[in-house]
Amino acid sequence: ENVVSAPMPGKVLRVLVRVGDRVRVGQGLLVLEAMKMENEIPSPRDGVVKRILVKEGEIVDTGQPLIELG
């Protein structure tokens, strides 16, 4: 699984990683606000951040690609 998608609609509050960062399974990639709750979106696997597909403040839909892992 190379693309991390939004599990719910919401607003991207914070991106916690940068392109080139090594991440571990379960590590927070970004914080999504949904229904006034902050939800940290975890990495599904170990890898390297290849691309960040959203910006802070952006509104996303369920299933929208957020981050690509390499």
Rank of each mutant, 00 (worst) to 15 (best):
D61I: 03
L32D: 15
G57E: 10
Q27Y: 12
E56M: 06
R22G: 13
T62K: 06
V15W: 11
G10D: 05
L13W: 09
V60N: 09
N39K: 10
N39H: 06
L13H: 02
R22E: 13
R45V: 11
K50P: 05
R24H: 01
E33M: 00
Q64S: 07
R22W: 12
Q64M: 12
G20K: 12
G70V: 06
M37V: 09
V3K: 13
R51Q: 00
I59N: 08
L69E: 04
V3Q: 09
G70R: 13
V48D: 06
E38D: 05
G28I: 03
K50E: 12
D21M: 13
E1G: 15
V4I: 04
Q27T: 04
R18F: 11
N39E: 09
I59F: 09
S43V: 13
M8T: 01
R51H: 09
E33A: 07
V25R: 07
L30H: 13
L32E: 08
L32Y: 00
I67W: 10
A34K: 03
G28N: 13
G57K: 10
Q64C: 14
V15Q: 11
L13Q: 03
G70F: 08
D46E: 10
P44Y: 06
S43C: 15
L30P: 15
E68L: 04
Q27G: 11
S43I: 10
G63V: 07
V23H: 08
G70T: 07
I67E: 07
L13T: 04
I41E: 03
R51M: 05
G10I: 00
I52N: 08
P42D: 06
R51F: 00
V49M: 00
N39R: 03
R24A: 13
V31L: 11
V12T: 12
K11I: 10
D21A: 07
L29F: 06
V49C: 14
V48C: 15
G57T: 04
R18V: 10
G20F: 14
R24I: 07
A6G: 08
E68A: 15
N39P: 00
M35C: 14
G47N: 06
E1F: 15
M8R: 09
E58K: 13
E58T: 09
R18W: 04
V3C: 14
V60W: 04
V48K: 08
E58S: 12
V49K: 15
V17L: 10
V49P: 12
I41A: 10
K55Q: 05
R24V: 09
V17R: 09
V54M: 02
G20H: 13
M37N: 13
K50R: 04
R22K: 02
I52Q: 01
G26E: 03
V3N: 10
G70P: 02
G63W: 03
P44C: 14
E38Q: 03
L16Y: 11
G20R: 02
G20C: 14
R22T: 00
V31N: 01
P7H: 00
M37A: 10
V54S: 06
V31M: 11
P44K: 13
V60Y: 09
L30T: 00
Q27S: 06
V19T: 10
K55N: 03
T62P: 02
E38R: 04
L53N: 01
I41L: 11
R14I: 01
D21L: 08
L30M: 00
L53W: 04
R14Q: 02
I59P: 05
L29V: 02
V19S: 13
I52S: 11
V25Q: 12
E1S: 15
K55D: 05
A34P: 06
M8W: 05
I41Q: 03
L29N: 13
K55C: 14
E56K: 13
P7G: 11
V4R: 13
V17D: 12
R45L: 00
P7E: 13
S43M: 01
G26P: 10
D21G: 00
E58H: 05
E1K: 15
V60M: 06
R45Q: 11
Q27C: 14
E40F: 00
E38L: 00
E58R: 07
I67R: 15
D61S: 09
V23D: 15
R51W: 02
N2R: 15
M35A: 04
M8Q: 13
L13E: 04
